[in-house]
Nucleic acid binder design. Structure first.
Lengths: 132, 132
DNA sequence: CGGTATCCCGGGTGATACTG
DNA sequence: CAGTATCACCCGGGATACCG
């Protein structure tokens, strides 16, 4: 039985598409991209360029920065594969995987109260507009 | 039976003191101060100046900004009391109170893994220092 | 007391170009 | 492919002063 390194299915390029302005998703971890990166690593290690796909519009610089920060904080492990073609993998550490728990809780809450969040925000904007 | 408006105990000026560098508390809601404000409102309505106490060093401007944002998003309700002395109260809305659930989850996780978080961070810093 | 009005600074973020 | 280097901009946030 061969035992090739676990390779999860490719990421859905639209996994963050419908929304995520993070204005409405009220929980943030680390910097702007950190939670999204964590989510991307949920199903297994990912390559640098692989991560760029669902992270619409992220620059190499920002991605590097976020990854380095996550690495420094012990949430993500970076491993450089040797071989002809360059290949660097990023994976969740145990600690990083643990973060997904509370993160899921937060996301679940947001999804459950999505309509209320939208309504409240619209009402708030209307009030703000009326005041001026 | 008189029914005076509920007034919770005064806030502990040191309720955020030992730590909270928010670098290690990996969950953020809204801006820099939002989660702390939410926590401050947990036990009931608070006045503007009352909030400034545990929020060591926050400026009136920042507090106003954060509160206005929380109000716009429907997490906090502002009520201006009439009377001789000026008095403005901020209280959690139902939606805002709901946020405390996931927030508690996040805080609990952080507390549970505090030592690991510290260790991982120190290790990360050491590695970073070694690389340069 | 409960804010506004200004000024200002640092850095987080993006755009672009370049590299091993 | 997996980054680095550089510039440049915006704005969150603090400091200070003032107001109804």
């Amino acid at each position: 039985m061969t035992n090739p390194p676990v390779r999860p299915a490719p990421l859905d390029p639209e996994m963050f598409d419908p929304v995520c302005p993070s204005a409405l998703v009220p929980f943030r971890v680390g910097d702007k991209w950190a939670t999204l990166i964590l989510r991307c690593l949920e199903d297994g290690p990912r390559r640098f360029s692989e991560l760029k796909v669902p992270l619409r519009g992220i620059t190499a610089k920002s991605l590097t920065q976020s990854l380095r920060a996550l690495e420094r904080d012990g949430f993500v492990a970076r491993t450089e594969q040797e071989g002809a073609v360059r290949r660097v993998d990023y994976a969740l550490t145990t600690l990083g995987r643990g973060l997904l728990g509370p993160l899921d809780t937060a996301c679940a809450w947001t999804r459950e109260h999505w309509d209320e969040l939208i309504d409240a925000q619209e009402a708030g904007l209307a009030r703000a507009a009326g005041r001026h």
